[in-house]
Amino acid sequence: MKPARFDYARASDVADAVRLLGSTDGFNKPLGGGMSLGPMMNLRLAQPDLVVEVRRLDALKTVAEEDGHLAVGAGITHSAIEDGRIPEVTNGMMRFVAGQIAYRAVRNRGTIGGSIAHADPAADWPTALRALGAEVAIDGPDGARIVPLADFQLAAFTVALEPADIVTALRVPRLSPAARWGYYKICRKPGEFADSIGAVVHDPERDFTNVVLGATDGAPLDVAALAEAVKGGGTVEIDDAKAALAAQGAVFDDYGNQIHAVALSRAIKGALAS
């Protein structure tokens, strides 16, 4: 349970991090809070040659309100969001989600950008931020770019980052005051990685409705038929959710079909009740 040997460098700024990550041909990884990468390295599932620490970079800790978005620095911790230490533009959804991530001692060090870059299917931010329609701000050797989260996570632990890219911020759209959200996570025990996550954002004023299923074996799934049902104001029962998943070819084992349908229907009921 000890990591394999690796080299370590601490980046002085974002450009330095990009330079360091591209400085050798090996498997180089940026290190934020390390709350996901650390366990992967201890289990030797990840064996980077070079770890570049970006946790302390001031540029990754900024939070800025921009035209219709809140740009949350990649280095903002889950507990900072949980405690309301950054502006809340999602009518409480981000605070609610942050407070359920793992355990407080993990939330104190783990970061939103790290979670998105790591892209564990069972983690909270990939599903919650996708439901919110967030975008990922990335910096790399070819300059900065912005990618919608829906195009960012390609599969489990697989994202649209080149080897020397780092996530610098998450751009979260501001919800209208009347927007509703629902988030329902099924875990065997609080703080465990989820068996299923249902996330719903319904913002009629912005003509935005999204229903996302997380904790599958791949990237979070948009469930368009259920988004239509939410728009129509109808309730969604477990069997409706099962049918919607089946109709788009999202078929799991019996337990998976049931647990995912339950998470989705409860998330939708939560959103409609809020």
Partner: peptide, 13 residues
């Protein structure tokens, strides 16, 4: 000042 996991936090950091 905050509780954290020392098993997955490297001393260098």
């Amino acid at each position: 000042g905050e509780p954290m996991r020392s098993c997955i936090t490297y001393a260098v950091s």
